[in-house]
Simulated scan of single mutants.
Amino acid sequence: MNKNIAVFCGSRFGNVPEWKDWAYDLGQGIAQRGWGLVFGGGSRGLMGQVSDGVFQNQGRVTGVIPENLLSEKPNKELLSELHFVKTMGERKQLMGQLSDAFVIIPGGVGTFDELFDVWATAQIGSHQKSIILANWSGYYDPLIQFLQHSLDNGFIMDSHFEKIQIVTNVEDIFSKLQTS
């Protein structure tokens, strides 16, 4: 099946050296399965690694970037498609429309925003696409603990929490994507 996978992640590499390799492996695996990547369009950090993994393995790479982030300088030669939008909200909306599933690997504020946006829209029934949270090296452990705290205190229901699939490695990401 020809899927498009949105990957949300950091435009920095973070402090764990393996993340750089795992991000590349994620991109490579997307391309090897004949799937396409939909991502934020930047060429730096983990975002750049994922797109390099797809591109260097002859995969399709679609970037979606807000006009005010053009300083990110997307490498247009490495993109099959590039969409410019006006706002981050438009970016998330278009990425959602172009994607069949969402994978979230380590990142910062923008990544958190993207995670919560696709989760909230799934919770209200706007989509039923897979949301896979890659908890590499325990990066998301504190967030998962807080989400459990929210569940325990009645603000998140089990049915909400079940919309996110939490994995710890690249292979498990693909196992989840194969069945979605």
Rank of each mutant, 00 (worst) to 15 (best):
R60T: 13
D100N: 15
T168Y: 09
R60Y: 14
L98A: 05
A101Q: 03
G41P: 05
V7F: 10
G29K: 10
K3N: 12
Q97C: 01
L78R: 15
V50I: 09
Q145T: 13
S51W: 02
V54D: 03
H160N: 12
L143I: 13
E162I: 03
F146Y: 15
D100S: 12
F161R: 13
L177Y: 10
G125V: 08
H160D: 14
W136K: 00
L26T: 14
D117L: 06
D52N: 13
V61S: 04
N57Y: 05
V61I: 12
A120L: 12
I30S: 03
V61A: 06
N68V: 11
I164C: 07
P74F: 11
V170I: 15
P106D: 00
S126R: 12
L177G: 06
G138D: 05
V167L: 06
C9W: 06
D152I: 05
L94A: 02
V7R: 11
V50W: 06
N135K: 07
F116V: 07
Y24G: 02
G125D: 07
D172I: 01
H83Y: 15
Q32A: 03
Q49C: 11
F13H: 10
I105Y: 00
V61W: 06
L79E: 00
Q97I: 05
E162S: 14
I156N: 10
F112Q: 12
G36V: 09
G42W: 04
Q28I: 01
A31L: 07
W35G: 00
D52T: 06
S71H: 15
K76M: 08
E90A: 11
Q58N: 15
F174N: 02
F13T: 09
P66N: 06
K163H: 09
M95Y: 03
Q148N: 12
H149F: 14
V64Y: 02
Q145D: 13
L147P: 00
V7M: 08
V54E: 04
L79F: 09
P66L: 05
V109C: 06
E67P: 00
L46H: 06
N135Y: 09
S43N: 14
M47D: 04
R44S: 12
D25V: 02
L133S: 01
M88V: 05
G48M: 08
V54P: 01
W22Q: 15
I166L: 08
K86M: 03
M88G: 01
I144T: 04
S175L: 13
I65F: 07
Q123N: 10
A6K: 04
G42M: 04
N2A: 13
E81P: 00
L26W: 08
V109T: 13
M88P: 00
L69T: 10
R12A: 13
Q128D: 13
G36Y: 10
F13C: 03
V54G: 05
K76W: 05
N75S: 10
S71T: 12
L79C: 12
S130K: 14
Q148E: 14
G89R: 14
G34R: 08
D158Y: 11
E81F: 14
I105T: 03
A122Q: 03
D25F: 07
L78Q: 13
I132L: 10
I131A: 06
E77V: 07
P142Y: 13
V103M: 08
F39H: 15
C9T: 11
M95Q: 12
Q97S: 08
